[in-house]
């Protein structure tokens, strides 16, 4: 599974941090960052965060 984020689309709602705090964080500007892109993340949490993101800033692709 590969998680990609687009900080330019991010609107800082924080839904991803609430949903999957081990995967996502907000940087100093409040925009989305992936904590560890290489980590074997739980697919369910990542997909839920992508589905809840109001601005479509998160994509999750199968390996």
């Amino acid at each position: 599974m590969r998680i990609t984020v687009d900080p330019a689309r991010c609107v800082g709602a924080g839904q991803c941090v609430l949903t999957a705090p081990d995967l996502f964080d907000q940087d100093d500007d409040g925009l989305v960052t992936v904590l560890d892109p290489a980590a074997g993340a739980p697919a369910v949490a990542a997909r839920e965060a992508a589905a809840l993101c109001p601005s479509g800033a998160i994509s999750v692709a199968a390996d």
């Binding site: 609107v11 800082g12 941090v17 609430l18 907000q26 100093d28 500007d29 409040g30």
Partner: peptide
Amino acid sequence: IPEFTVRK
């Protein structure tokens, strides 16, 4: 946005 992050 920086004023309303989950952490803030």
